[in-house]
Design a protein around this nucleic acid. Structure first.
Length: 261
DNA sequence: ATGACCATTTATAATGGA
């Protein structure tokens, strides 16, 4: 099973890149963030034509998430329970025995201390969600744009200042609290050290200098982690014409029969 | 070489992104 997360930075601007990528990679699931449109403006027909059902939670301007699934799915929630802000940043579906939370965590650099508090509040609600899944023995993946570089090697030298919300100690502590419930960071489980960036700023020639960040993550529940086969950021996508500033993060899972054999 | 981007908004500069 092949599952990807990708902050596309406008689904309408990136529609053809996304469709080309789906055609090439044939993932079972694609969780997109920052679709930057209302639900009615989402190009669902084009994705349906490519063989995907769409769970879309749109919003004008920024925000907006959508999950594409090849086989059947059920939408379990269109918002993050316990996070009481009217923003389209979470959609959760159930497919093939997995609950898949697609999240777009607030950046936290705008809106002063209130803005930063909103980021931590999202983390709290997400952690509560994960705890509830563990208590009910639910197999799940929480994937998306976390807007956190978990460790210093996830941030290229000089890419961010020490007070940036993506690297602040409280941001990293919040990420660790979630992880330490017993989840597995899919990328780091297979590639424990070294850069594995998923984002390069449009500014300052960041891509050319490989001045990137690892801020998109896929966190797996224990039984799902046992099936983890590969995990990689698809860097090729950043070299395309008019790309998103993020690339897809892809994880593949062995099927259940193999895992228990 | 101390600059430099991109998308959206009932736009035509401001704002958020990271």
């Amino acid at each position: 099973m092949k599952i990807a997360t990708w902050n596309v930075n406008s689904v309408r601007q990136r529609q053809h890149l996304i469709l080309d990528w789906l055609e090439r990679e044939q993932p079972d699931v694609l969780m997109m963030q920052e679709i930057k449109c209302e639900t009615a403006q989402f190009p669902a027909e084009a994705f349906q034509k490519a063989g995907y059902d769409c769970a879309v939670v749109g919003q004008k301007s920024y925000n907006g998430v959508a999950t594409l699934v090849k086989s059947g799915m059920e939408i379990t929630t269109d918002h993050l329970p316990g996070f009481d802000h009217p923003v389209a940043r979470y959609v959760e579906v159930r497919t093939q025995g997995l609950t898949l939370g697609n999240l777009y965590l607030p950046n936290g650099n705008s809106g002063g201390e209130d803005g930063y508090a909103t980021k931590l509040a999202f983390f709290d609600a997400l952690t509560a969600r994960a705890r509830a899944f563990l208590q009910t023995d639910t197999d799940f993946i929480l994937a998306g744009d976390y807007n956190v570089c978990p460790t210093p090697e996830d941030c290229a030298p000089g890419a961010l200042g020490p007070d940036d919300a993506l690297v602040r100690p409280q941001s990293r502590a919040a990420y660790r609290r979630l992880l330490w419930l017993g989840l597995t960071d899919g990328l780091r489980a297979l590639h424990p050290s070294g850069p594995a960036y998923t984002f390069w700023d449009y500014q300052a020639g960041a891509w050319g200098r490989d001045c990137g960040l690892r801020i998109d993550h896929a966190l797996l529940s224990p039984r799902v982690a046992e099936r983890l086969e590969t995990a990689w950021p698809d860097r090729d996508e950043r070299a395309m014409e008019r790309p998103s500033d993020h690339v897809p993060l892809i994880v593949t899972l062995r099927d259940k029969a193999q895992a228990t054999a």
